[in-house]
């Protein structure tokens, strides 16, 4: 249980994929314009992350390691993620048409969200077992949602600010992103203090 909590909290706060590992920056900058789409994207990514962790772990263990073809990991994982995103899209379209519409083009773009591939590969590299992988997936997804949630707030403030002309648009967004990222370094050492 303690291990699970450590994995969960370090994935959300300390090793936040977006703000500390710099994975999944593209949707982080692309979908953080409004809170509503940010949260929709966060939920979709969370769903895909957990499912991807659940599917890639047995594939890696029984197929890739079983046949001694670990070098195919990246290729096979991308295949899994692409199929998964397509499946999520099909299901969402049937079950939750409003969310499907709100996410629009960003839904298929989860395929190329490197946070998903990063999670699946890091799960293997860290030697997590099946349940730990799932917990890590949920943690990373929650961390992604947190980063998007925080940053959409920052951006709405930046939009109203008087930004110098040469910094308008993407430049000030990147500066703001780096500052938010910097703030997350404050969580370094949190795990040791909490659980150590």
């Amino acid at each position: 249980m303690r291990t699970m909590l450590i994995i969960l909290f370090s994935a959300i706060l300390v090793d936040n994929f977006v703000l500390s590992r710099f994975l999944g920056i593209c949707p982080f900058l692309g979908v953080s314009k409004s809170l509503k789409t940010a949260m929709g994207m966060g939920f979709a990514v969370l769903f895909v992350l957990v499912l991807a962790a659940a599917i890639t772990w047995p594939i890696n263990r029984y197929l890739l390691e079983g046949f001694g073809i670990e070098f195919l990991r990246t290729l096979v994982f991308i295949l899994v993620i692409a199929a998964l995103v397509q499946l999520v899209e099909t299901i969402l379209k049937k079950m939750l048409p409003p969310l499907y519409k709100a996410l629009g083009i960003y839904l298929p773009l989860i395929t190329t969200n490197c946070a998903v591939l990063g999670l699946t590969i890091l799960n293997i590299d860290n030697g997590y077992d099946f349940v730990q992988s799932l917990v890590n997936g949920a943690g990373v997804g929650l961390g992604f949602m947190l980063a998007l949630f925080l940053f959409s707030g920052v951006r709405s403030r930046v939009d109203r600010a008087d930004v110098p002309a040469f910094l308008k648009g993407l430049p000030i967004t990147l500066v703001a992103a780096s500052l938010v990222s910097l703030s997350f370094f404050g969580f370094k050492g949190l795990i040791e203090r909490l659980f150590g």
Binding site: I59, L63, L64, F71, L72, L79, A83
Partner: peptide, 13 residues
């Protein structure tokens, strides 16, 4: 083996 494994996976998906 790699080709077969990938092909089977792709077929399943």
């Amino acid at each position: 083996v790699p080709v077969g494994a990938t092909a089977v996976l792709a077929l399943v998906f």
